[in-house]
Design a protein around this nucleic acid. Structure first.
Lengths: 231, 231
DNA sequence: TGTGGAGTTATGTATGCACATATTTGGTGG
DNA sequence: CCACCAAATATGTGCATACATAACTCCACA
């Protein structure tokens, strides 16, 4: 009548042993078959529990070598990249949106380099201001590869932001993301209603569908913005 | 001798169908048994492939209801929280470290609130400056709960940073993290060698072992720092 | 016309087995 | 003593099956 042992039980037990130093950092732990017998479950169950712990960075596993407790448990944080509208609404504010520009032009060198496109490729540039309860929230500055998005012409971005349109119309498969701080220049200061030189938070992102570059975007947030997540 | 169909094969095939709009956003997809038969593998294999896609945000699954393509695929970024020394060394620079302060004191209200401790609890405060090739890299400002870390007294943090010591001596189980930009005040400007008001990137983190608060830390990086990761 | 409960169904997960694959280890020959 | 190969072994994965669990559907009954 013993309730079945689930992989989560095993995982919690393993975490407990790690936390309480029963298994010490750098030390080998019993192999799957031994744990399965000890804990009264199948090896597959142990495998799933440990596999996820390894993915989370608590354990290091290698075939034949076995499993050891990670010496420097690399903490991994995962956080959502929400649609800006959802981000605003999640903060209890009403989302507003103003399209500033939409035109095809030669992309600056920094953009073509990030997207690994030939210099001076013509891309579609979209600039917009997102508002929260009428106050400036975020400036979206985006270059889109029209080759990768055939239906781009149909979207005018006057009502729906490029941010949202792309999420719904293109399936991405990868990319890179960077966070940093930068001082406001005159344009950003005017748009975000802050003084020149104010400390702004920026997210810079490139996205790809396979090997095809889709878009490069910078999101520059008004002062006071905090991006948060749970570990 | 058809090679065995692995879960990764299934996953790629599913991603392809999503990317190429064979399965449209919001639409139900065939149930596991049907896919297993179509693709010539066991249901468990399909399950694993789809389970991971759901975890990654591409699919939404509910018992009995079935599986549908996520309407707003929430992009998730996961990134490592490295030890600062590794971060510096990974950038090809030599890591330096200077302890600025280590003393027990009443924690400020903001810190006790974040750690859900009574106001005016006495905590250990550690402040340090990390250097990259001798240049200021990051200011570490940390409050540690001595109750949660019995061996804290043994560590003097003059050689090994608190950042690194804690990672190796305490197993964390959770916490929260926030990123934002802030202007340099006089102290930060002096430490980081920038002008007052310069735009700085800050990471604010609290960590817990179960329900026990361990530490609250702010890492403030010198101008020019970028935190990057792949999506 | 509801309304609650039973049946149905898709996903979630445990199990035992088999085999694949990566490494370590130990032995063998130059 | 070193280079190289073979055996041993821990993890990685697939499969068939069984049962658990959530939740939608529909029917019976008030």
């Amino acid at each position: 009548m013993a309730q079945p042992v689930t992989w989560q039980t095993i995982q919690n037990e393993a975490l407990r042993r790690i936390r309480e130093r029963e298994w010490k950092p750098g030390e080998m732990i019993p192999h799957e078959a031994a744990l399965a017998e000890e804990l009264g479950c199948a090896r597959a169950t142990v495998n799933r529990a440990l596999r996820e712990l390894a993915a989370a960075g608590f354990l290091e596993r290698r075939r034949k070598a076995g499993t050891r407790v990670a010496l420097n448990p690399v903490r991994k944080a995962t956080f959502d990249i929400p649609i800006i509208r959802h981000d605003v609404e999640g903060r209890g504010a009403a989302h507003g949106y103003r399209l500033l520009e939409r035109k095809e032009a030669e992309a600056p060198a920094g953009v073509t380099a990030m997207l690994r496109l030939p210099a001076r490729t013509r891309l579609v540039h979209v600039a917009a201001l997102h508002l929260a309860d009428g106050a400036p929230f975020c400036v979206e500055d985006r270059w889109i590869n029209p080759q990768a998005v055939p239906t781009l012409g149909e979207a005018d971005f006057s009502g729906l932001s490029a941010n949202e349109w792309l999420v719904q119309n293109v399936t991405l498969s990868g990319g890179s993301i960077a966070f940093f701080a930068l001082p406001a220049d005159a344009r950003l200061a005017a748009l975000l209603g802050c003084s020149v030189g104010a400390a702004l938070f920026r997210v810079e992102r490139t996205t790809w569908a396979g090997a095809v570059p889709i878009t490069a975007v910078t999101l520059t947030y008004a002062p006071g913005y905090r991006m948060t997540t749970a570990i």
